[in-house]
Write a protein that binds this DNA or RNA. Structure first.
Lengths: 188, 188
DNA sequence: TCCGAATTATAACGACCGGTCTACTTATAT
DNA sequence: ATATAAGTAGACCGGTCGTTATAATTCGGA
């Protein structure tokens, strides 16, 4: 069914990347079409409701893309403190070798939470899922249910906020310094 | 010289508010002009370089606006933990009585950090200033220089990230739960 | 092979974008 | 009072936005 990567997949991947880098209103359909090597006809064939529908699919893609990376990193150490610290350090390193990944969901959330309810809801579900990943890691390491849930919330906020600081300063230093403080912040 | 609030001030205040609520590309000049009760002629009289110049002035306004509130809240308790906790709790409360203030700078930073260097630099300087406020509070309470700087960074990330989670979930709960964990996170 | 459906390619549309320009009104100073 | 500047109002421009419509092409099963 189609080549290894269908036009639909190309559109979703490209939209996911561009929306991460410049937000929802900062990216036009023209650019998504050009960069994905598809055409306007394909876009409206697979996403008849247009930009909003594509954005929701792109948000879902970002959710899975990031979730995979988080699970991978968290599995690298049994101790959750080491695992989480390593994960954030990796984010910082990716920043410094400017493989730009942008602010995953926060930008779109900030642009649309008052004006586009379907997109806002999609963003909320992404954060819920990411939190769950950290929560489970902490739970399986003997943290209490309350501690796991609360620390997971703190971690998501720290990471999302840390990425903001790193993109604003064009340096992974902020994320790196946050990573180095994780052992002080997360204690059983 | 002009009425109590000049057209220039009205433009800056309105732009500051709207950019906070919907980001840079999500707000048009037409809307800024209408909501501020001014005219396009005035906008380009005071900001001959257009939207970008207005945005930088609006970012500066947001910086001062938030700085004032932070300093006020931090002065309410001698103990920095109580003061910071109280500050974040207040943010959470403002959220619940939906006096929308938006994600102060993060959205604009995420939209523009790759494409508009002057705006990106303005955003960076805002975070630097806000960090300084927390850092000084901690320093004056006997925290070491390194601890003060590191905790200030963590606090900015936590708050900016917490606001993202609160806007995405349309609830101050995320910020409130983060506030309640501050004593565990910030220890001398 | 052939037919119908799926997919792709483009032209065109109205709406709106940021920005420019000019005319008009208001304030300031002598 | 008058000259000069400061500020305001809004029509207008080219370009781009998301969307629609239609034609051409490719694909899949009988």
């Amino acid at each position: 069914m189609g080549s290894k990567r269908s036009a639909k997949d190309q559109l979703i991947e490209t939209a996911s990347r561009l929306f991460r880098l410049r937000g929802y209103h900062g990216v036009g359909l023209k650019e998504i079409i050009e960069e994905s090597g598809t055409a306007k006809g394909s876009l409206y064939h697979y996403f008849p409701e247009g930009k909003e529908q594509l954005a929701i699919a792109a948000i879902e893609h970002t959710k899975n893309f990031v979730s995979d990376k988080v699970q991978e990193d968290l599995a690298e150490a049994a101790d959750p403190i080491n695992a989480i610290q390593g994960h954030i350090q990796k984010l910082a390193q990716e920043f410094n070798k400017d493989s730009v990944f942008g602010l995953p969901i926060g930008t779109i959330a900030g642009e649309t939470y008052l004006t586009n309810e379907p997109i806002r809801a999609a963003c909320q579900s992404v954060f819920d899922e990411w939190q769950r990943l950290y929560e489970e890691k902490l739970l399986s390491s003997g943290y209490s249910e309350k501690q796991s849930a609360d620390y997971a919330l703190v971690l998501i906020a720290l990471i999302e906020g840390g990425i903001i600081l790193s993109i604003a300063s064009k340096s992974g230093e902020a994320l790196s310094r946050i990573a180095s403080q994780i052992p002080l912040l997360i204690k059983k």
